[in-house]
Simulated scan of single mutants.
Amino acid sequence: MPRITLSQFAAEKGQTKAASLLGMSQGALNKALRVGRDIYVTEHADGSFAAEEIRPFPCQVQLKKSA
């Protein structure tokens, strides 16, 4: 699986299962989606998943998604 956005991953797997696969709570995943964090998910060869966030450096201001 190529690198996909967290929102695409959650849409494919469902928020509860996506959160479980990433080792986080569903509430934390929902909040990350709500505020628009720039997070990408990659599937490893062994079937596990990893997520990474892209942020400006240095980042002193919290990024928020406009509603």
Rank of each mutant, 00 (worst) to 15 (best):
M1Y: 07
R3E: 13
R3I: 02
R3A: 15
I4Y: 10
I4W: 10
T5M: 02
T5H: 11
L6V: 00
S7C: 05
Q8N: 14
Q8A: 14
Q8D: 15
F9P: 10
F9V: 05
E12V: 02
K13R: 15
K13P: 04
T16V: 11
K17L: 08
K17Q: 13
A18K: 06
S20R: 13
S20W: 12
L21Q: 14
G23V: 04
M24V: 15
S25C: 05
S25N: 08
S25K: 11
A28V: 00
L29K: 04
N30D: 02
K31M: 06
K31H: 11
K31C: 02
L33C: 06
L33P: 06
L33T: 13
R34W: 00
V35T: 11
V35I: 15
D38K: 15
I39Q: 12
V41R: 08
V41I: 14
V41Q: 11
T42S: 13
T42Q: 11
E43P: 02
E43W: 04
E43S: 12
H44T: 05
A45K: 07
D46V: 00
D46P: 01
G47P: 02
S48H: 09
E53F: 05
I54G: 03
R55I: 06
R55L: 11
P56L: 15
P56M: 10
F57C: 12
F57K: 14
C59T: 14
Q60T: 13
L63E: 06
K64S: 04
K64I: 14
K65Q: 06
S66T: 03
